[in-house]
Design a protein around this nucleic acid. Structure first.
Length: 499
RNA sequence: UCCUCGGUAGCUCAAUGGUAGAGCAUGCGGCUGUUAACCGCAGGGUUGUAGGUUCGAGUCCUACCCGGGGAGCCA
């Protein structure tokens, strides 16, 4: 008998194995129980037959509650109908510990409830799939850079100054002096690139802005490569290769996870080189175009047409309800909830879309794109796009100017498709010390704290570039989720510090 | 900070201003191939808080508290 994990069951067909895990779900009848076992690597249905196990094992099967810990021995059978494709015919069962009444039942729950039980919610199947994909992406990130001659070099988390002077940071007391939790490893990354050539940082990042949206966390993980002797074009080539590489790995290794999440694989398969490269001015024109206006009008019309259809179904269901059998009533009730939720979604979209439409049309050259603008831009394409050369005044002080148009900075953002928006921000850095000194003054930043940074331009200044990838936003997009909060084990959000 | 939507049983949700309900979960009973199993029975409520309007408030009004979504800002 061999102890193994659910993930490895395909190597033990028709053999007897031992599994250790938790009861994910249980159903059964007088002499037969179906226990869905969860061990962290997957799920498997264990069949306990009264006639085939001893009394002690049968007692464990009858008394085990949801999330009770058990050790199961049994024969592995291939069964295509089951989750994971295998089933265990149980020969013996041992109870490790009985679980109290479990809060998260197999039915649906609201966001607040689940967030309050995040420590338990992580055991659920969707969360399992998301965390495994997160893990796969992290591994691929390291592989990509390590294979390409980068070394990982970490930037400090505690800093004495705000990097860009724009964001609101978390302030702490550092032995009597004010200090901040880092909002970016950027400047340190540049120093390390001058030391090692090509580096990447991978660590937590903190933003104290009071953003309450599906794209924001107050604590998130960022990957920031920085490369000496790279210009903007090379930087864009790198980010393109990088993202294609990550998506390919997830598609190759996480088909089960993507399936659990019901992710549209085709959308991910379209993530191929080359990504459209859209000049800021071009993006502004597209945003203000009739094409964008009409696209939204069509969407509004489609949503408006959906309302009477839903209402008709609701009325029809109500009519049938009186005479419906019990199981039909349950179906009607469930459908009613679905319809109500859909109606709320439509209402919200109908509130938002006209505003988006107006704001896109009235967009002024020189402003930064808002969340809705990014969504609208990406809807014109089937894969990520790279928007480059933004107005300098909306970008950080260290951005190099476009030699062909001084109003522009050599920055670039990658916008993910399907409405996911900005996942990468980066660009080519300024090399001229006088320019940087002027910029620091123009941004009202204290020159003293940038003394060390300016040294980088004093001793062998070279063209260099880099970017930052928001891990959680990447995972949200790859998994096709509606909110970043599910992409990190214990999300920190505005108003959320526990558990 | 501002805009917007919401708060009813442990959970998810119903309830033209007129007797607060259902499903799940829990307990008991039935069923040897179930797939969020099913069937029967039972327990379970100060409708977020405080006021107000009314013969009568879950429903209308005011204030506050908590949560969702969005703006600003950003990965």
């Amino acid at each position: 008998m061999e102890y193994t994990t659910i993930e490895q069951l395909n190597k033990f067909e028709s053999k007897t194995v031992e599994l250790k895990g938790w009861v994910y779900n249980k159903r059964g009848s007088k002499g037969l129980f179906f226990i869905v076992l969860r061990d962290g690597t997957g799920l498997v249905q264990c069949v306990v037959n009264n006639g085939e196990v001893n009394e002690a094992s049968w007692e464990v099967a009858s008394s085990a509650t949801q999330e009770s810990a058990i050790i199961v021995q049994g024969v592995v059978n291939k069964d295509e109908r089951q989750v994971g494709g295998y089933e265990l015919q149980v020969t013996s069962l041992e109870l490790v510990s009985i679980a109290e009444e479990y809060a998260i039942s197999p039915k649906s729950h609201g966001v607040e409830f689940l967030m309050n039980h995040r420590h338990l919610w992580l055991r659920s199947r969707r969360q399992w799939a998301i965390m495994r994909i997160r893990n796969r992406i992290i591994m691929s990130i390291h592989n990509f850079f390590q294979e390409s001659g980068f070394i990982q070099a970490d930037a400090p988390i505690l800093t004495g100054n705000a990097v860009e002077g724009t964001s609101t940071l978390f302030e702490i007391d550092y032995f009597g002096d004010p200090a901040y939790l880092t909002q970016s490893g950027q400047l340190y990354g540049e120093a390390m690139a001058m030391a090692f050539g090509k580096i990447y940082t991978f660590g937590p990042t903190f933003r104290a802005e009071k953003s309450k949206t599906r794209r924001h966390l107050t604590e998130f993980w960022m990957i920031e490569p920085e490369m000496a002797f790279y210009d903007l074009a090379m930087n864009m080539d790198l980010v393109e290769d990088f993202l294609v590489y990550l998506v390919k790995d997830v598609l190759a290794d996480c088909s089960v996870e993507l399936d659990v999440l019901e992710r549209d694989i085709e959308a991910l398969k379209r993530v191929e080189k080359p990504f459209p490269r859209v000049h800021y001015s071009e993006a502004v024109d597209l945003l203000k175009s009739d094409k964008t206006w009409d696209m939204i009008s069509e969407e509004i019309a489609a949503l408006k047409a959906e309302v009477p259809v839903l209402e008709a179904e609701l009325a029809d269901n109500k009519k049938r309800y009186g005479q419906a059998k019990k199981w039909e009533k349950k179906k009607i009730d469930a459908r009613e909830i679905e319809i109500n939720q859909r109606q709320e979604e439509i209402k919200e979209s109908l509130r938002n879309l006209p505003e988006w439409q107006e704001s896109a049309r009235n967009f002024e050259w020189g402003s930064d794109f808002g969340g809705s603008d990014e969504t609208l831009l990406t809807r014109h394409y089937d894969r990520p796009i790279i928007v480059h050369r933004y107005p300098a005044k909306i970008k950080a002080f260290y951005m190099k100017r476009d030699p062909e148009d001084d109003r522009l900075a050599l920055g670039m953002d990658v916008l993910a498709p399907e409405g996911y928006g900005e996942i990468v921000g980066g660009g080519e850095r300024a090399t001229d010390i006088t320019f940087l000194e002027d910029q620091i003054a123009a941004h009202n930043l204290p020159i003293e704290v940038f003394k060390w940074y300016l040294d980088l331009r004093r001793f062998g200044s070279v063209p260099h570039s880099g970017f930052g990838l928001g891990l959680e936003r990447m995972v949200t997009w790859i998994c096709g989720l509606s909110h970043v909060r599910e992409t990190i084990p214990f999300p920190r959000l505005l108003g959320r510090l526990h558990p």
